[in-house]
Design a protein around this nucleic acid. Structure first.
Lengths: 351, 351
DNA sequence: ATGAAAGCGCTAACAG
DNA sequence: CTGTTAGCGCTTTCAT
């Protein structure tokens, strides 16, 4: 390989359009016209310019272009937690869809913290992103709306915010679907589980769906668990207690609807650790259908979100908004969820 | 909430530094000085400017700033596959570390395809990123070196490329460590498994380590499986055959060292499907130690990479390079791996 | 078909 | 302490 011994990497200055122009013996506008593929340049000069570009290794400076054009082709993407497989999959889809339409994605991990969410959006705005895609929106709607309103288009994918375009599943329906699956399996005491740091409007809607399903079946009361894995404690109906308590004693829950798969899988892990049998002692339903949920060893019953479709529609929506094809009040697009039954749920075995 | 009925989102033009200047009755340099927090501005004007900034909702245009400064604060990050939990975790760490040093991360998913890898780098270069962090490098070293050399600093984290700074584990050592664990458990026929689309220099080094461990133990020959899950077929020692063949018949393998956890877990899933018992019939060792590997139901024995440390050192290295603190020939930083023994491996039970 | 000139919003000397 | 000026690299009229 014989890497040359230029000890200092010696980054040389990027050639500019002027360098190319003088090298090809034309004016900079001509070079610009060639670069942008405009017509009205003779084949001869076009070739000369192309050669000069190649020889100098010229690469247009997107910054300068976008400064004069007053618009960028960067899309900001706000992600709750890249390490969460659902977001990772979504991020990947979104990046691909964006690239397909000529946009570059700039990600922003928020850890579900509305502080860094705001900071992230601030950074995106300073970079004059063409639009912002929220894959999670936990933040203070008030402040965010103020900083974002009238600045750039925003689309909320698999989350929502009342203002701005939305592409998501019907979370309440999903919540009802998952809970109903449990109720129909004979469970009378079904708990709702969420991970506090990832809570947002979607979670609330799922909770609503859970409540409705309970009401439909004449069951109650609701039972809400806020848990930060892998703690043994959780906030149960608002009070901090051992998580295990939920599944022991007379009024114990025999089923749990989790607001996302990561929570569901963490609960399954917890159950394994304390020798609660899934689904024998407790049935679990998740939400999202992350790839992991499909592993034979996990086999999580879950409410599946069509990730690719969400990403596709989300990017289509914001691209339409940016490029002026879509105007008017916020547009809401709802796509279907469906239940994927696997082995983490089973009919209640009567005592 | 009463969202006002401005049907057209009416994105209004961003106020510029000039707007602020006239609004505050000062010159634009004064505003600039205030924004950048330079000393030498009277407290009074400073306050006036601050107020004007707030009232107008002014936000500096990073593009313009970076155009004149001839350097950006964007770091390009080339990721093999964001949906792979190892990369997802790394991406997250890298983003955090970059942010901590004032850099913004711009990700680029390559799907292990050297074509889109090159295209991605091209885009990053057009955006005049300050440097590029490779979390995977599958590409054609030749071309990439040409396009990258002398342009921007590059650091290879958990991968490597001969030229450019490297922060990684000793992959060959890791391969030896994982394989040796299997050999010491009594296995005589140990296969090497990799996922072709993610192969790169690291994989090769791990393979070398695997070979060394075999040689150390006086074992052989090597057995190489290239598999694209969830197919039933795989390329075994170069020929396409049913994957199951590896584990049946007289010369069958009783253990597998996989070049990454995703491959290992996929193999475990395959084994479950065809009723091969893990670790009874086959022991499996992975590489990376992704979070999932620690789940009780997966319990994968694996060679753990210190992700946070890799990210930290990687960003530190490239930041030093960019900011001129580090000069001279490529620097290689090696961090330790360690074996995490879980339940996917067991001593060979003698027939 | 090609070139000249005027900025995009900002920073970085340098003057006052 | 504050203002003036000259670009950064590019697109975009408008002349030629």
């Amino acid at each position: 390989m014989a890497v040359p011994h230029d000890s200092a990497p010696a980054m040389r200055r990027h050639p500019t359009i002027l360098d190319v122009a003088s090298h090809a013996g034309v004016s900079k506008s001509t070079v610009s016209n060639v670069v942008r593929g405009l017509p009205g340049v003779s084949e001869a000069t076009r070739r000369r310019v192309r050669t000069a570009i190649r020889e100098l290794g010229y690469r247009p400076n997107v910054l300068a272009r976008q400064l004069v054009q007053q618009r960028t082709s960067i899309l900001g993407v706000v992600v709750g937690d890249l390490a969460n497989p659902f977001f990772a999959e979504m991020a990947k889809s979104v990046e691909r869809q964006a690239a397909a339409r000529g946009y570059t994605a700039m990600f922003c991990n928020t850890e579900g913290d509305s502080q860094s969410e705001l900071a992230g959006v601030e950074t995106l705005l300073e970079h004059r992103v063409a639009g912002i895609v929220f894959l999670a929106f936990s933040g203070d709607s008030r402040t965010m709306q103020e900083t974002l309103q009238h600045q750039v288009p925003a689309v909320f994918v698999s989350c929502s915010a009342g203002w701005g375009d939305v592409v998501s599943v019907d979370d309440a329906f999903g919540g009802r679907l998952g809970t109903r699956h449990l109720v129909e399996a004979g469970h009378r005491r079904v708990a709702y589980l969420s991970i506090p740091e990832l809570e947002d409007a979607s979670d609330h809607a799922r909770w609503d769906g859970y409540c409705e399903a309970l009401k439909e079946a004449g069951l109650g009361p609701q039972l809400k668990i806020s848990w930060t894995p892998p703690s043994d404690q959780a906030e149960i109906d608002g009070v901090e207690r051992p998580l295990l308590d939920v599944f022991t004693g007379p009024g114990r829950a025999t089923a749990v609807f989790a607001s996302n798969d990561v929570a569901a899988i963490a609960l399954q892990e917890f159950a394994d650790r304390v020798s609660l049998h899934v689904p024998g002692d407790v049935s679990i339903v998740g939400f999202d259908d992350v790839p992991m949920a499909g592993l034979a060893r996990i086999a999580l019953t879950t409410v599946a979100q069509p990730r690719d479709e969400l990403a596709r529609l989300g990017i289509a929506t914001i691209a339409d908004r940016i490029e002026g094809r879509l105007k008017g009040p916020p547009k809401r697009t709802i796509v279907d969820v469906n239940l994927v039954a696997r082995n983490s749920t089973a009919p209640l075995r009567r005592a």
